[in-house]
Design a protein around this nucleic acid. Sequence first.
DNA 1: CTCCGCGCGACAAACGTTTTAACACGATGT
DNA 2: ACATCGTGTTAAAACGTTTGTCGCGCGGAG
Lengths: 334, 334
Amino acid sequence: MATVSIKDVAARAGVSPGTVSNVLNRPEKVAGGTRARVEAAIRELGFVRHGSASTLRAGHSRTIGLSVIDIGNPFFTDVAAGVEDMASERGYAVILGNSSGSRMKEERNLLVFAEQRVRGVLITPSDEDPGRLDRLRERDIAVVLVDHPAERSSQCAVAVNDVTGGAMAVGHLLRGGAGRIGYVTGPAAIRQCQDRRRGAEQALAAAGRDPAELREIAMPAMTAKAGQQAAEKLLAEDALPDALFCANDLLALGMLRGLLQAGVRVPDDVSLIGYDDIDFASASTVSLSSIRQPTYQLGRVATELLLDECDNPDTHAHQQIMFQPDLVVRESTR
Amino acid sequence: MATVSIKDVAARAGVSPGTVSNVLNRPEKVAGGTRARVEAAIRELGFVRHGSASTLRAGHSRTIGLSVIDIGNPFFTDVAAGVEDMASERGYAVILGNSSGSRMKEERNLLVFAEQRVRGVLITPSDEDPGRLDRLRERDIAVVLVDHPAERSSQCAVAVNDVTGGAMAVGHLLRGGAGRIGYVTGPAAIRQCQDRRRGAEQALAAAGRDPAELREIAMPAMTAKAGQQAAEKLLAEDALPDALFCANDLLALGMLRGLLQAGVRVPDDVSLIGYDDIDFASASTVSLSSIRQPTYQLGRVATELLLDECDNPDTHAHQQIMFQPDLVVRESTR
DNA sequence: CTCCGCGCGACAAACGTTTTAACACGATGT
DNA sequence: ACATCGTGTTAAAACGTTTGTCGCGCGGAG
């Protein structure tokens, strides 16, 4: 039958509703005996607090939103795992929003977050427009950028240095003797793609080469399928580069499949390096060299910053944290 | 400046709050001119409905919960994609809960769902105890089982025939001339593991062999890491089976890595087949034979059933839908 | 013996929406 | 001219919590 409310619990325990609420939210304020009686009543009646009522009255929820670009990408799954662990340690629930790289879907997810009155939002923005985020902040919703450097110092952000990562990747290719290098990337709006390219160009320059040599193959998505299409595109032309740097491992795995199917040998004909070092990178046909990032940590730390901002708004100091990536060499590069 | 409420909108548009609510929920009930005025006010003030207040008063939310066993497994990511697409087409938001195979976490996620007063729950249960689900139903929360057959006809369920799939896999191994066959599986509590084994045994019996021959290697998780550990376990013994059937592709990929590292050739020394046909199965060192399931469809259809049950509780007829799997032969099997 | 302070609970007023019943007002039919 | 009806809108009562204020009773200080 109908839902059991705080009133029913109060009646059963012989106290007032307010006291039940206190037991729930500030147990230390209520005397031991009373508390025990209330807790017993809660258990017997199977009471579960009405989150909406609580949110409505209290003005805020115990919920945070997480908006990612592609939940199908193991990189984001790992981040999400870190977020979820930290959030549930602190008693928060996570609403996940997947933008699939579509600005419209991202927008809609943020709307859902706003409607649910989440306490804060973790977001890996799919483009550089800060407007949406400002609108959230106007609504008293804390925002922490994930895998994206801060746009200003008045906000928290957690990122990994993508320029360094890009330089590591291409530096490694150059040390392997690569001549012409191709950069397989995703939508131009995605900052990670830009930064990794900048790093690649720096590595070229550092080796005394012209950064403009870098041949860019841009795809509309950063999935394995897109990677395979990039391979087809590349093969349709005459001259294959000596080495390919892919902006993430999914692209690289798709590229690898595409190349192998066409009889191109990796790394003998073409060196190939990815980015993210997802689990599957080491399991692929030719195991994939890649750039490793502290993914799970990224999620955990971002969540910690967000919850600190929520729970201690006065003492909170905004932080911009930048992790460093690592080069992982496997079979796909000379 | 606090949040803008329906009252502010009403004042601005010169109507009563009730009318604004009508514009929001039953636009056809309000006259064209008024509606336009209200909509303008909403836009100008940047009003966004307070979901909690709405849920509180209406008695139910526009939210469903999705509880999966391992969001790190691409199988579930695909299911989740189907769920999310269908849900957002129908105006529902999805709260994702990942149980990581832990009963306690599953329990906690269901509690969060209950607190949020989700309209319904999609769940791939991590064990066979129906008690939790009954408790949800008592609270008027619809439940649809995903990738799990119904326990009774008074509920909806969407599944893929795992017995058939298991039989397909082992039948294929037998046709390849396999002698001793090993079954690498996960926790005994997971039904999929049991059913796939039953199918495997049926295939053995059908080939005139003793089902008891099937050598079972059970692991505590169904991840790539567990698969690699299974390989180590197997290699520590004397006699390797001729063929291995892994209960999912992650186990199979881990097993593959473990075997290759030890110098075992696949499929020459050992045939290997997985289950789920995740994207990465075709990209692995030796591309993986597997059993394909209509994953995305599974999510979509399950959500459709759930929302039908929520939106048309009277006319809703419970359905149990069973899809059929497909055999995908690649390089890892003879 | 009185008074103050304090710990513990009760009371009641919100929070922002939905929804029901009632109402105003023209149009329609007799 | 009157009753009837339909359309569009309003007023007000919920929904289940949280929280600030207040009151009670008890122990210790004066």
